[in-house]
């Protein structure tokens, strides 16, 4: 296809991605270097019949004017990145100096908002992803053995947790796990502890979120593996059987190698999706014990009295993007190798 025709076909799509994905990333990186203006204070004399007092208040007009003149705020360099709410270098140094023992140091570190969120985000990504792949694989094997009239309805039910809106899915589970919901009160009666609440304990909250993540994402792995199972070459299976391989041997030596590329594909998508974990934290109302990087950004826009913390949100966004890039590099390099056109130009 000539360059000119190619351009005519691709420009709307390319323009959309350029303006709404590439530019925002750049605008975020610029914003992260700026910080909101301080409020301009003025001192006025407030006189009452009992005498005059000087009080300080925010000069709204001047503050607004300053904001209108320079909406980005004032230049702060990498100040936002290193402050307490982000990489917190000075707090880290202090914690290192003052704490005795690694445990105490780590406890200090995970109290800092950024590291708290980072630790949850990474744990979520690396616990949910393998579980999703393994459970999805076994469901696919099991569904494949079902008689064909049962396959359709089973697949329908199995897909439900995946297509459900993440916020809605987490709410549905949350209402059941609630101390007054069915699972919550069931657990209370099992452990005979009327005060048991999954919400109150940070560890249980984390486990609850992991379970939600596995529940939500497993159907994706299942359906991809199931589709892959349909393409397992029959004669390889048969020759393995003739060679005396039992069912496990067939699975181990024929099916798993055949599905390996799919497992890589699933982990690529899962790492991308799990790293942006956000809605379950809202749905489970879990921010007290578990926060994620995406939640931190959301919180910067929602906190305070209508003042959005653009600088802080942008800095967290940039750190998140760097995090994603580090995680994705190996998989993207692999995709690049696999899809590289054999000759440069054809």
């Amino acid at each position: 296809m000539p360059h000119y025709t190619f351009l005519k076909f691709i420009w709307p799509s390319a323009l959309a991605m350029l303006v709404f994905i590439a530019l925002p990333i750049m605008s975020t990186s610029v914003q992260s270097l700026f910080i909101e203006h301080e409020k301009i204070l003025e001192t006025v004399e407030n006189c009452t019949p009992f005498g005059c007092k000087e009080i300080t208040k925010v000069d709204l007009e001047a503050t607004e004017a300053q904001k209108a003149e320079n909406p980005l705020g004032k230049f702060n360099g990498f100040g936002t990145y290193t402050n307490r709410n982000h990489l917190a270098f000075s707090e880290l140094k202090q914690a290192w100096r003052e704490s005795n023992g690694l445990n105490e140091f780590l406890a200090e570190v995970f109290n800092l908002p950024f590291y708290k969120a980072l630790s949850f985000t990474l744990s979520y990504t690396f616990i949910v992803t393998p579980f999703v792949i393994i459970i999805g694989f076994f469901i696919a094997l099991a569904v494949n053995r079902l008689p064909s009239f049962l396959k359709g309805p089973t697949i329908f039910v199995c897909l439900l947790p995946m297509i459900i809106t993440p916020l809605i899915g987490s709410l549905v589970l949350f209402w059941m796990i609630d101390a007054e919901g069915i699972i919550g009160s069931f657990l209370q009666s099992i452990f005979n502890d009327p005060n048991l609440s999954l919400k109150a304990s940070p560890t249980l909250t984390w486990i609850m979120l992991f379970v939600y993540g596995i529940w939500h994402h497993t159907p994706f792995a299942f359906i991809v593996f199931y589709a892959g199972l349909q393409t397992v070459p029959r004669d390889t299976l048969e020759s393995a059987m003739i060679d005396g391989a039992n069912r496990w041997g067939q699975t181990r030596h024929v099916i798993i190698p055949h599905l390996m590329p799919l497992a890589v594909f699933i982990s690529l998508i899962q790492i991308m999706d799990n790293f942006r974990v956000f809605e379950p934290i809202i749905g489970f109302n879990a921010q007290a014990s578990a926060t994620s990087l995406s939640w931190l950004i959301y919180n910067d826009f929602r906190s305070g009295d209508g003042d959005m913390l653009f600088g802080s949100a942008a800095a967290t966004s940039m750190l998140t993007i760097i995090g994603v890039s580090i995680l994705m590099t190996p998989v993207i390099v692999r995709t690049w190798r696999a899809n590289r056109p054999s000759q440069g130009v054809s």
Binding site: I25, Q31, Y298, F310, M318, I321, S325
Partner: peptide, 18 residues
């Protein structure tokens, strides 16, 4: 496009808002 697909949506929102 693959790299763009990896960007968490909310990081893009922080680029849009202002």
């Amino acid at each position: 496009a693959l790299i763009f697909r990896a960007m968490p949506h909310i990081t893009l929102v922080s680029g849009y808002l202002l």
